[in-house]
Simulated assay, not measured.
Amino acid sequence: MGNPSVQEILRSVQDTTTTKPKFSEDERNRYEQWATPLTRAAIGLASWLPEVDAAAIIEFVEFPKIRLAVSKFEGEYWSKVSEFDRSHRFISSIDFRKAAASFQYSPVVDRPDFKLRSLRPELPHHHIATFMREVFTWTVVERADLAIRPYLLPGNKYQLPILVGTLAAYLFVSGNNHMPGTAKEDMSGSSSQKQKLPVYPEWRARHDPNDPEASRRLLYLSYENADRYRVHQEYSEAGWLETLMQQLKQQLEKEFLRNTQEEAEADR
């Protein structure tokens, strides 16, 4: 609707001469209540994917089946890393790059010619690649109605950054907040009521394309994201994901070029 992109807002907020849109207190309250830590992480990711529809990224990151893939990643790998000092859990950019290369070799789950001998289940890139394959299968192979789908098709330069960045967004949230769908611990150590992960109808209602407030709400949250980045830099959602995107950019472009060159040679 003519709104600037999330990345444009991120740049413009540094300029004190830029006129920012005004939001009423009622609007701010409604938009703050609508947003979750995962919403803000998704907007942080959108900050570094300038040609991708930010609303589509948020819808995708919050898609309930993504949470299932994250739960599997947590159960099979992440929860077992540094169990006694979870603040030091870490995945290097090298592991993300290896996962991207493995995914490109075989993007579909259970493809018959997938060479399992190239993977070692105890290594992080195996679990990251598994996450990417499951998400790709659910959102590209099995569904056609997600707005993010065109960006995830083979050959799109944003496919790998979106898949890797989505997992990274969840890891950021899990490191700084309680994940949606997980139990909170109160001061006595007993579990309080679970934060509910929206099931499909609730998720669909949150991302109704006919919602008259959707565009203005995204505008507000994008400016909030930019302000958080300006103040907190690398400790903000956008800053943390910026570091990852910069580390991955060169290798992902290399893998993208290699893949397209192989496809061109195969067509000759």
Score class of each variant (00 low, 15 high):
P180H: 07
L163K: 00
G165C: 01
R204Q: 13
L257F: 07
S192I: 02
M245K: 01
E255L: 15
Y220M: 11
A214K: 13
L153A: 14
R216H: 10
N156R: 14
W203H: 15
V231A: 06
E202I: 04
P201M: 05
M245D: 00
E255T: 14
Q193N: 06
P201R: 09
I148K: 03
Y223N: 10
P198I: 07
Y170E: 00
R216F: 09
P198E: 02
V231Y: 06
S192V: 09
N210R: 13
D208S: 12
I162V: 10
Y235C: 05
L221M: 11
S222G: 11
S222C: 04
D145Q: 12
I162P: 02
L257E: 13
H178K: 09
P201D: 08
S190Y: 13
L167S: 03
L152P: 02
M187G: 06
H178T: 11
A214V: 09
Y229C: 03
Q233E: 15
A169K: 00
S222Q: 05
Y229A: 02
S174D: 09
E242T: 03
E237A: 15
R216T: 12
S215G: 12
I148F: 06
Y200C: 04
T243E: 04
Y151K: 10
R206F: 03
M179P: 03
L163H: 00
Y170V: 00
Q250E: 14
E185C: 11
E234Q: 15
S188G: 09
S236E: 03
D145Y: 09
K184Q: 11
L146R: 08
A144G: 14
L146P: 10
P161I: 01
S190I: 09
T166G: 00
K184N: 13
E202A: 05
S188Y: 13
R149M: 05
R204E: 07
M187Y: 14
